[in-house]
Structures are given as structure tokens and as C-alpha cells.
Nucleic acid binder design. Structure first.
Lengths: 239, 239
DNA sequence: CGCTATGTTGACCCGCGTCAATGACCGTGG
DNA sequence: CCACGGTCATTGACGCGGGTCAACATAGCG
């Protein structure tokens, strides 16, 4: 069983220039015009923690660049990656008084922080602000439910195929047309998100490559050659 | 692979008297005082569908008595039970214009329906109504996330133990003190909720019985004899 | 009473986890 | 520029947890 050394708990405030930026800069993705106009800028380095399970929830954050993963960890070190957050995504708005999971930068990332009192004020003022936040929560809930179907009932190959397609659609909104996915996360991150092991993820990806369905020019770059076959695999048409 | 014959799609409006009522009558569980005062009463018989995936979302519902399961079904018949809903619970409030899963009565059930236009009106009027609905959505989201950890990373025994403890806590709020859980759902329902098979659920329950941790006086009744040992199993202390 | 739905139990097997060895890549310092 | 060490990915061998299949038990229910 793996255990994960907790990286330094305090966020690295020191600014860094991201060397390689696998994800494009933010577009105004989610409807969050209701947020307070200006928040404090935060820079995180590779694997830095933004907050940890149990921390007092002081702020919520919007990703500007890079990528963040949200993880839950069991007592014995088993890890589950609840979700990956990309530029434009809002994170931590669903916490009560305390965060119930840990957030870490997958790669160097820039965020904007919105103190919760400020957010609550904005919610109290604008009637449709609450509505938009509710809609966001409901979208997250729907996504969580289809992830439960994936974890509960899909084979390894179906999970991988579903993940790749979903990731492509997400990135397509930002940088449309690209058939090549620039992966920010490692095989282990993907495995912990899909309820698999990193070996299984690697095997499935290379099996897809051998079948000519995807290409792997670089470990972190996945090129989808035959989306329709991937779609068939995601629905369970065998091999 | 099992396939599930779709029961008659239209809800059985004909009233029935529930013969055995495994769940107690509703208490004012969730804070939903903001709901319109009176909604239409609905009675469902065993396995009747309340609504199906793809139906136009006209209403949301509150369970008065009985139990309802919410399921997602894959093209080839694989099934996942997203959640079970007990008296006091609100169902269908998270739908967009159309339901994205099917709701069926586990046992005979009574519900109250609230037409969505009526609900939207209540939301527009009261400022804290929206806040309470948001809180409800966020509680559901948190529950979904811990279910993902269960599905992605827990062994069969850990899933069963976690499920039993969670179910007991839920029922305890309504009928406190009881060490015996009156199960409304079958082994298949439980299996489809935990990402297992009905045989595995049966084996694990009987293994717990052999170890003296629970008793099974009747297939639908589970008596928790040693909650602390169950709690240990849920966290992963082996056997 | 028999019919049907549900639950139990055993035998077998396979998909994926586990363990281990090797390879590719990258930043760092000599 | 290259040697070195660390991280990540790949690949193979092997085993096990839980899925699959099948037989039988039990319990409501007409």
C-alpha cells in the first residue's frame, strides 16, 4: 500500500513561472460573473497543497492556469481523486465550515482566492447569484453520479475510454479542434481517479495504442485517432 | 448479465395500503419548510416507477412513507443504484428539464408531489429558500463523494460494513435506539448500490453473522450486535 | 399447496491487483 | 557535455478477490 508524504501544508505563495503549461489560460467558462470582482492571486508549484482535509474553509478559489486535483485519503493511505480542476473551474465553494478533502496542484498553477465572507455577501445581495451557485452544485452532483456508475459497474477499459472522451470534451471547450490531449496528471493520478492501479492504466492506454485507437507520442500526450471506436468501448462494446 | 424488465412507465396512482411497512412514517427530517404547503399525494406499489430517465421533469417529490431507489442503467442492462430515499427525503429537485435517472418504489410508498413551477415560485419569493436548497444539494454532493471513495477503493467487506453503519445512522434519526435495521431493499438492490453482486452481498452478510457481529433473524432484518467491530471493518482493519 | 421471487452456498475462473525488473526522461552538478 | 539520481512509465509473471454459473433452500402469496 502506498503512503503519500504530505507536502508542506502551507500554500507556496512565492510566485513561480510555470515552465510547461499543459493547459491553456482560462476562458470565462463557468457563469460566475456574480463573484466579487477582484480576489487575491495565488501561485502553487507542482504538488503543493492548496488546503487539506480538516482545514478551516476560509476561501474558495478559481483556477486561472494549470490544474488542481481534489483527493480523499483513507487511514491506511489508499487514495481517491475526486476530480481534476482546470482553468475556469471553481473549487472549495461546497465546503461547510471545514474542507472535507485535500486540494493539490497537479502542475504549477495560478488561482484567485475569494474569501468566503465576501462570497456570502455577494450571495446575499444578488438573487440570481444563489441560483447560479445552485446550478453549479447540481452540475457537480450529476457528474458525481455518472462517476459512481463508472466506478460501480464499468470495466477498466470502459473507464479509461470514458475518461479520455470526457477529458477531451472538457478541453475542447477551451482549445477547440485539438485531437491531442495534453495530460497534466500522472498515471497514478488517473488510476486513483478511476478506481484502478497505475499499471492497469498504463496497460489499457498501450493496448489502445496497439489497436491504433490512440497514439502516445509522449507519456503526457494522448492523441485520439479513432474517437468513434473509443466511444464504442466506453459503452461496453467488447474490445 | 441481467436485464431488468421496465415496469409500467406510468406511476400507479391507484392507492394501495402498504402491507408491511419496513420504514417508519416521516418526521420533519430535512429543512424544507420553504416548500409549498400542500402537494398532491401519490401512492406507489412495489417496483412501480415514479419517473424514468429522459422523462420531462415536471415535479419533485417528498417521501412520506416507504422507500424509493434511484437507478442508472447502462445500454446492456448493468445497473447502478445511485441512492435509496427514505421518509422525509426530497427527490428529483436536482433535475434539469429532464430526469437523468429512474426512480422506483422499493416497497409500497407514499409521496407528495410538488410541481416545479410552484417550487420555482417559492424559491423566487423566499431568499433563504434558495439557501436551504443549496445546502441540501451540497450535502448530497458530499455524500456522493464519499460513495465514490467507497466504490473506487474499498473491499467488499468494507463496503458492506460502511453501508450498514450509514443505514443505521439514517434510520436512528427516525426511530432512535433500535439496533435492528428493517431492510426494505433486496440483496440485488444493495449489490447494485455498492458495486458488487448479490452473491457477494449475501456471502459478506453471512460471514458477519458467523463472526457474531450481526444477526439475521430474517433476510430483511439485520441486527447489529457489535457496532464497534463493524466500525473497525469499515475502516479496513482486516477481518 | 404449488408458484415465483428471493436468498444461500459451493465450485470454478478471470480481470485486475501485486510485485518486480527494466526503460525513458529530466533536471542537476561536475 | 556527460554522468548521475530520481521520478514516472512500461511490461511480465503470478495470485487473489470477487464475479459467474449452478443447485438448492426458504418464504410469501394466490
Amino acid at each position: 500500500m502506498l503512503s503519500y508524504a504530505a507536502s508542506s501544508p502551507q500554500p507556496a505563495i512565492a510566485s513561480r513561472l510555470p515552465a510547461a503549461m499543459p493547459f491553456p489560460a482560462a476562458l470565462p467558462e463557468e457563469q460566475d460573473s456574480w463573484l466579487p470582482p477582484k480576489g487575491m492571486r495565488i501561485s502553487l508549484g507542482h504538488n503543493d497543497a492548496l488546503f487539506s482535509e480538516g482545514d478551516e474553509a476560509r476561501s474558495c478559489y478559481k483556477i486561472v492556469s494549470g490544474a488542481v486535483r481534489v483527493v480523499k485519503i483513507m487511514a491506511d493511505g489508499r487514495r481517491y481523486v475526486v476530480d481534476f480542476f482546470l482553468p475556469g473551474d471553481l473549487i472549495g465553494f461546497d465546503a461547510g465550515s471545514t474542507y472535507e478533502f485535500t486540494a493539490e496542484a497537479v502542475v504549477d498553477a495560478q488561482l484567485v482566492s475569494y474569501p468566503r465572507p465576501r462570497v456570502d455577501m455577494a450571495l446575499a445581495e444578488s438573487p440570481q447569484a444563489g441560483r447560479q451557485l445552485l446550478d453549479l452544485a447540481l452540475r457537480r452532483l450529476a457528474a458525481a453520479q455518472s462517476q459512481m456508475l463508472l466506478l460501480g459497474r464499468m470495466s477498466a477499459m470502459e473507464r479509461i475510454a470514458t475518461f479520455l472522451l470526457k477529458l477531451q470534451r472538457r478541453l475542447d471547450g477551451k482549445r477547440p479542434g485539438g485531437r491531442t490531449i495534453a495530460l497534466a496528471m500522472t498515471r497514478l493520478d488517473i488510476a486513483d481517479h478511476l478506481g484502478l492501479t497505475l499499471e492497469t492504466v498504463s496497460r489499457m492506454l498501450n493496448q489502445l495504442k496497439r489497436q491504433g485507437i490512440i497514439d502516445l507520442p509522449h507519456p503526457q500526450h494522448i492523441c485520439i485517432l479513432k474517437p468513434e471506436r473509443l466511444r464504442a468501448l466506453a459503452v461496453g462494446v467488447c474490445d
